[in-house]
Simulated assay, not measured.
Amino acid sequence: MGNIAFVTDSTAYLTPEQANEYGIEVVPLSVLFGSETFREGVDLTAEQFYARLAHADKLPTTSQPTPGEFAAVFERLLKDHDSVLCLLLSGGLSGTVQSAEMAVKQVGGDVTVVDSRISSYGIAGPLLDGAALARQGGSKEDVLNLWRRELEEMHAYFVIDTLEYLHKGGRIGGASAVFGALLQIKPILTMNDGRIDLFEKVRTHRRAMERMLARFDEDARDGRPLQVGVVHSRRLEDAERLRQDLLARYPNVQADISELGPVIGTHTGPGVLALVYYPRLSSRRDGQ
């Protein structure tokens, strides 16, 4: 891995195997059920969270890591690395980026914080690409340039069962203006300027899936290599089926499956199925 250390937050939803393989440090956000606080991925798994959410009288809330938590990680990594690269959850959705930037001022050293302007696989894909590039001898500047290019061409489309969770959590951006009209439909959401926004409204789940896949086809049909994350919350079988369909139909696609955990799941609820994808600009990760 050379002299570069990598840091992200828990909403990248890396698997333990991915984090361990590349030595990526994960700083957790937290979910609060009343007076109880749980660190995502440490004290609360996705399965435990969704089971608890189903019976909660009141929606949980979420909180970002403190600057001190980031500072402790940065200080430790700087002892053994020349630089630290930190790719985090969109600043339009959370104050996590701001906490990390405050920590950089506390510790000094060569630490670069990058706002992904997205969440989940939109963080994980470029993060793992960058770690693989560093392992192959890429410099800090090489990794940052790769991230910039991948994030600029990132696409994300979410089919979601209900806007209730996003609306109550205040995370839905411009789409909140049409919330009342969307109660009886299946919206397709996207990321716009780092925030969640409405892409299209349709009346059935089947039609929403068809429209999302048609939009993906517009980007995939030209044959460019695409890296795809099939993202879900409590829809693993559907996600696996969709992944296999994409791999069979598009020889230019590589696809992973990622599940939304407690923090993002607080705002989306269960039942999400999404495609997050970008042009593959690097040699892919070892063995994938």
Rank of each mutant, 00 (worst) to 15 (best):
V84D: 12
S139N: 02
Y121Q: 10
A214W: 05
M102C: 06
S282M: 11
D142W: 03
L78Y: 02
G2A: 15
E101H: 12
F199D: 06
Q136Y: 01
G173A: 12
T204W: 14
L89A: 05
V230E: 09
P126W: 04
E237H: 08
T112H: 14
V253K: 14
A19C: 10
G34V: 15
E25Y: 00
A175P: 09
A19N: 07
C86Q: 00
G261R: 05
N192D: 15
F38Y: 15
L44S: 03
V104H: 05
E200Y: 07
E152S: 04
A5F: 00
F70G: 04
Y157N: 03
A5T: 02
Q98H: 07
P16V: 03
L151V: 01
L247P: 09
S116H: 05
E153Q: 15
E150M: 09
V230H: 07
G269S: 08
K201S: 13
N145V: 01
Q48G: 10
Q136R: 15
I160A: 13
Q184L: 15
I185H: 12
Q288R: 12
R221N: 10
R148E: 13
H55T: 15
A248N: 13
L273V: 09
E259N: 02
Q288F: 09
E240P: 08
E259C: 03
S94M: 03
A72Q: 09
G91S: 14
F216A: 03
L226F: 11
M191W: 12
A51T: 04
T66N: 08
L32F: 04
D142A: 00
R149P: 05
I196Q: 02
Y13H: 08
T37L: 08
A56C: 06
I257D: 10
K105C: 05
V230K: 11
R148C: 00
L246G: 10
Q227F: 07
N252M: 12
L85A: 01
T62M: 02
R171L: 15
V276P: 09
D110S: 15
K105S: 14
R39G: 07
S176W: 12
S99L: 07
V202Y: 11
D80H: 13
P279C: 05
A132S: 14
A208N: 02
I188D: 08
R206D: 06
L213F: 07
A239E: 13
E36R: 09
F179I: 12
N20T: 10
V73W: 02
E36W: 09
L59Q: 14
N252I: 13
E69T: 00
F199A: 10
S10K: 02
D110K: 06
A132N: 00
S119K: 01
A46M: 11
A274Y: 01
G130S: 04
W147S: 01
G174A: 11
D193G: 03
P262Y: 06
A131L: 02
R207L: 11
G41S: 01
Y22T: 02
Y278R: 11
D256H: 12
I188L: 13
A220N: 10
E150Y: 01
S139T: 13
L59S: 12
Q254C: 07
V84P: 10
S63H: 06
T45N: 05
A255K: 03
P187Y: 11
E75A: 15
E101Y: 01
L133V: 01
V143K: 00
T61L: 13
D80P: 01
R149E: 11
F38G: 02
R285L: 08
L163H: 08
T45W: 04
A46I: 00
D43K: 04
L144W: 02
R203N: 12
G173P: 06
K79T: 14
S120W: 04
D238Q: 13
